[in-house]
Design a protein around this nucleic acid. Structure first.
Lengths: 165, 165
DNA sequence: CCTTAACTTCACAAATTTCTGAAGGAAGCG
DNA sequence: CGCTTCCTTCAGAAATTTGTGAAGTTAAGG
């Protein structure tokens, strides 16, 4: 077993994975920099990196790191930590935050629901279009409730499979 | 009750709703034109419109309609119909296509899973990062199975509430 | 306090995306 | 069969987004 395959991680292999995973996230609608930063954090052994480490691995400016991290923190995909007695910040992914972030889709769904409610009203609940809106709205309300339960089931399943956090 | 509030739809109210709902879709990551076209179809009484009608309501060129519709058809949000004995095409939303489209998220999830599997391999299943990948992968596999069941439950729920299609 | 390291904000240049007009087909209709 | 209508494709202009360098801000450490 070579040194690079055991101790020090194969930087190139890591980078390849980071970029290919980030590309998938981008294709699903995520902005490029947040996607790359998130992928890098996800594939770090500690699950966390400093701003400088991120900038170096991804070859991007501190400004780009800053912007990406702000977005990720806002959407709860990543949390910021201050290293005590240092002015370095560490950005971390928790296993849990993955599904917290998914649950945050709720915020989006809520806004859709709001818009649909207005639609039902302004198109008229007794028109064909209004009825279609109402049904769509019902669908989202259904989904919303289901997601909550689904996450609860995942929490149980996860604990059984991977043990308590 | 004025004529416009009863018979002919209030074009301005419809337009306001279309634009505001489309804006929500855009914010969730959808391209602008597909979002506007989809919203317009959703709020039409027939659930379908011709290319010309879409162009007129949204004030966009035939080319833009064409591009938007191609995207929506690819993602199964809208189906194309040919009016028999005419060269006009109608684009239609089915109530069902909403959740067919959601189910199509499966394709995205599948690609993520592929990328994560590669990640587990290339980072090493016995490394902390590799284990995190494996857990993330397990999460998506869980979600994928759940979505299938969820859609089945919706189909039942929908039929009870709104009657058979 | 002053220095300096680390992050953030901002204005701008570059790259990308988006939409249009124009040209190019396909398919009904006479 | 040719004419006409409708849709699509394509090249390019316009708008938007993205990432950078530089200046600004905050807080640790002497």
């Amino acid at each position: 077993m070579t040194e690079s395959a055991r101790g020090a991680r194969d930087a190139e292999a890591v980078s390849r994975f980071v970029e290919s995973f980030a590309a998938q996230l981008v294709e699903a609608g995520m902005q490029r920099m947040p996607a790359r930063v998130f992928a890098a954090l996800l594939s770090s052994d500690e699950g966390s990196m400093t701003s400088a480490e991120l900038g170096e691995q991804l070859r991007i400016s501190p400004a780009a790191v800053s912007g990406a991290v702000r977005y990720l923190a806002q959407t709860h995909m990543v949390s910021r930590e201050r290293e005590p007695g240092s002015r370095r910040e560490r950005y971390r992914v928790h296993g849990n935050q993955w599904y917290e972030a998914l649950t945050n889709r709720e915020a989006v769904i809520k806004r859709w629901e709001g818009a649909l409610r207005e639609g039902v009203t302004s198109l008229g609940a007794d028109t064909p279009a209004g009825r279609r809106m109402a049904e769509t709205l019902a669908f989202f309300e259904f989904i919303e409730a289901e997601i909550v339960e689904m996450m609860e089931r995942w929490r149980v399943h996860r604990e059984k499979t991977f043990g308590p956090e």
